[in-house]
Amino acid sequence: MLEIKNLVKSYGRYLAVNNLSLEIPEGEIYGFVGPNGAGKTTTMKIICGLLAATSGEVRLDGVDVTRNSNKIKESIGYMPDFFGVYDDLKVTEYLEFYASIYKIKDKEKKKITNDLLELVDLTQKRDAYVDSLSRGMKQRLCLARALIHNPKLLVLDEPASGLDPRARIEMKEILRNLREMGKTILISSHILSELAELCTHIGIIDSGRMVVSGSVSEIMQKVYSHRVLRIKVSARVDEAELILKENPLISKLSRMEDALQAGFEGSEEDMSRLLAALVGKGIPVVTFSQLDGNLEDVFMRVTKGEEKQ
């Protein structure tokens, strides 16, 4: 559905997006992750026709986005990371204003507005002034606005940023509903664990370049070719560390706050032998577990933990 080929966006010598390519099939949810300043917002703005690309191609259903931006805008719903609302406008009026831009008839306008308010759980606030809403409510209203013309593709730039935990859960629930409705979604976030549950595909971007892209399981496989063990001991940590270091299957041993973490290139039998060796030498092992490589780890690993402002 969405196809990006060799996208470049430069500001003078600075490359905000560097030869980026990605593909999102219809009905998929693509998580776009990367540190601040990686080029996520720039890419999203180019997709939505809010920024011109320096070079490269962005196609939605085969149609060139940059050359047909007006036509494409009917098929895209965009929710920016930072946005404002109009003062002196009520929630329903706000949605109806955007509905009128898409020439939706009055009768349908009311129905769509009601449906969307229900979807984002703002029916109770329909007559409230938009600027009186909480941040979480404004985010949900903005999402409803992005859906007003029933777009094929939703581009959501950090939809959960700045929200409290409850609002995050509510937003996640709405996105889950949208996934069930079959929407194709491109979503960026720093909350990678949240994206892992929602997304079918993930792309990790760093310094404007796509570092890893593919299905969630593919990425896990790419980054973690081996297992990661987490071993917690109640005492004799130094001895435990020595035993682990001597094991040829152990790599990248690190001492965490309350546990040891290590890469392990062996089978499950090898794992049980390692545990037996530790216990056999009298190490008081409290926990011995294999970590599921979560996206936070993948992200930090791939982007080398660099946070750019």
């Binding site: 026709g49 809010l50 805008k73 895209i76 946005f83 109009y86 898409y102």
Partner: peptide, 14 residues
């Protein structure tokens, strides 16, 4: 300044 311009520009409104 109110950060509402992008929301207008991303619609089909010319």
């Amino acid at each position: 300044e109110k950060q509402t311009l992008d929301l207008l520009l991303c619609t089909k409104l010319s």
